[in-house]
């Protein structure tokens, strides 16, 4: 189908491409699902439309009614996707954004008319969530969809990403994705565990806890409610950290296959390669991984062109996941 009434119809049904040339083992195939093909440029388009439509079904939002405001914490992609959806629906969006995201992320929010509220960069997404909770409590007329706790987030992946993956790669044995809100992992994970029992679910995360200042003690930590609600510890089979150096290296390796993807996609690819490396030589396996977005939003980091040590130091100071 090539004619569409709305750009929103272009969300999902993303292509999946064979990246086995980067697999360390001939018996392990790796496929990457290219979520950068979504209209606002990332996997978060699926979440944004799901959050908004669920809120409309519940009557929290009414399309066309003037004066409706949403507020949401985001390190970028959810905000960008929500901004696009809100513009089409006529809602005003305020995004609480850590100050240290890449300038392209900030600018894209402005492109779609979102209002940016800065939270301290040193507090990472924790700080954005905390400030957003405070502002939402002070302004009860604003709609706070709270992607970290809203069941419509994993549901988007349970209903769309999961079935698409199983349909395109029915031989899947491992699913490897990034852990942020945990929406992708919880939604796709549940779908695969139900429809292809035995599929291993691997979570990849940046070493966030090392860099977030402002925690007085461990009680200031944060686990996304949707992770707890979906019994995330039981859902996941492994959870591994990928550090900035490897993230950049694998973001560059993806280019060898013509894939210009964002830095978190490089991190997740690195995780997929580690997953492949521990599979015995006599076992055939197929890993599906997610490329969350394309590289455009990270050009200012010099990730592909500058000296790698310089880029890694720069990457430690920005939010790319």
């Amino acid at each position: 189908m090539t004619r569409h009434e709305s750009v929103l119809e272009l969300i999902g049904n993303t292509p999946i491409v064979n990246v086995s040339a980067l697999s360390p083992k001939p018996n392990v195939k790796i496929w990457a699902k290219l979520e950068g093909r979504n209209p606002a440029g990332s996997v978060k388009d699926r979440v944004a439309i799901s959050l908004v439509e669920e809120a409309e079904r519940e009557g929290l939002l009414v399309p066309g009614r003037p004066g409706q405001t949403l507020i949401e914490p985001s390190s970028g992609n959810t905000g960008i996707a929500l901004a696009m959806v809100c513009q089409l629906r006529g809602y005003h969006l305020k995004v609480v954004l850590p100050a240290n995201v890449s300038p392209e992320r900030r600018q894209l929010l402005e492109v779609w008319g979102a209002e940016i509220i800065d939270s301290p960069g040193s507090e990472g997404s924790n700080g954005a969530v905390r400030l957003c909770q405070k502002l939402a409590a002070e302004n009860p007329d604003w709609v706070f969809l709270y992607q970290y706790a809203n069941a419509a987030n994993p549901l988007a992946h349970y209903r769309t990403t999961g079935p698409e993956i199983l349909n395109d790669v029915p031989e899947i044995t491992h699913f490897v994705a990034g852990l942020g809100t945990s929406g992708t992992l919880m939604g796709v994970g549940r779908y695969l565990k139900e429809h292809k029992p035995g599929t291993q679910i691997w979570a990849i995360e940046p070493p966030s806890g090392e860099m977030v200042d402002g925690l007085r003690n461990l009680d200031d930590g944060y686990v996304p409610p949707i992770f707890t609600d979906n019994h995330g510890s039981d859902m996941l089979d492994r959870k591994v950290i990928v550090r900035p150096q490897e993230s950049i290296e694998w973001t560059r390796r993806m280019v060898e296959l013509g894939l210009f993807v964002g830095i978190s996609s490089g991190a997740i690819m690195c995780g997929a390669v580690r997953c492949a490396a521990q599979i015995p030589d006599d076992v055939e396996a197929t890993i599906v991984t997610i490329a969350c977005d394309d590289g455009w939003k990270y050009l200012s980091t010099g990730a592909w062109t500058d000296d790698i040590e310089t880029v890694v130091e720069r990457a430690k100071k920005i939010i790319y996941f």
């Binding site: 960069g121 966030s208 430690k316 939010i319």
Partner: peptide, 13 residues
């Protein structure tokens, strides 16, 4: 062995 506090995803790497 690394000990880390759990923090919200999408945080600084």
């Amino acid at each position: 062995v690394t000990l880390l506090p759990a923090v919200a995803g999408g945080a600084t790497a």
